[in-house]
Design a protein around this nucleic acid. Structure first.
Lengths: 114, 114
DNA sequence: CGGGATCCATGTCGATACTG
DNA sequence: CAGTATCGACATGGATCCCG
């Protein structure tokens, strides 16, 4: 596999490229939380345990820039903002599910109980 | 999903747990390089572009400790050591393939040509 | 949501033991 | 010396966190 660059960053493989879109501690939890449809900021925060506002905002901005989520602001009396997955992000869900299943498999092997 | 800990580290999800076994810059490239069977250290180094000895050894040790690879040393004149995948690591290959495919899909969307 | 601290993954450079 | 496999000290940059 030849190297390539995108937006001035060097990648060694498609896997590394993919991880730029869904990797890191928070991107996958966010994408999963949006799986069933648009969710407002506050609910997103509640549904992802341990995430700080800083991280949630930072990652949402990053995902937006990468066209993985869309942000919609409604002109209502109490302002409302929600986030939704784009098509390309929806296609990541099966990959995330596979990772989740593999993680569960490893946990079983390591005899981790919840 | 409840949190859990393993060897004194805290995890928030099975995905995060899985990434501990196959994540980082080098683990997947290493696992893929071992896909067809045992490979010796030197060949591994040659087949993974840009990897340094330091990173290769560090990751191999880590993968060994996690029971993802086995190390076999032969008592020969020029020392020979080879590494092979364990069963649990072989089961990661399909996940890695899925990530690879998703990365390729994103690259196509971003119009990246090699 | 910013500033600043910090942690951790990664990288650089150099050195090791062994043997033909 | 050349080839193989490996390791340690240290630097650095990015990711993440705490605080206000």
């Amino acid at each position: 596999m030849k190297d390539f660059r995108h937006q001035n960053r060097l990648y060694y493989s498609p896997v590394e490229f993919a991880m730029n879109y869904i990797g890191g501690t928070w991107k996958m939890p966010i994408l999963v939380a949006l799986r069933e449809g648009p969710v407002r900021y506050g609910d997103l925060k509640k549904s992802i345990s341990h995430i700080t506002d800083k991280m949630l905002i930072t990652q949402l901005r990053d995902l937006e820039e990468k066209n993985m989520v869309t942000r919609k602001a409604y002109a209502e009396k109490p302002p409302r903002v929600d986030y939704a997955l784009t098509e390309r992000a929806k296609q990541a869900l099966s990959v995330i599910d596979a990772l989740h299943a593999y993680g569960a498999f490893l946990m079983k092997e390591e005899e981790i109980t919840l």
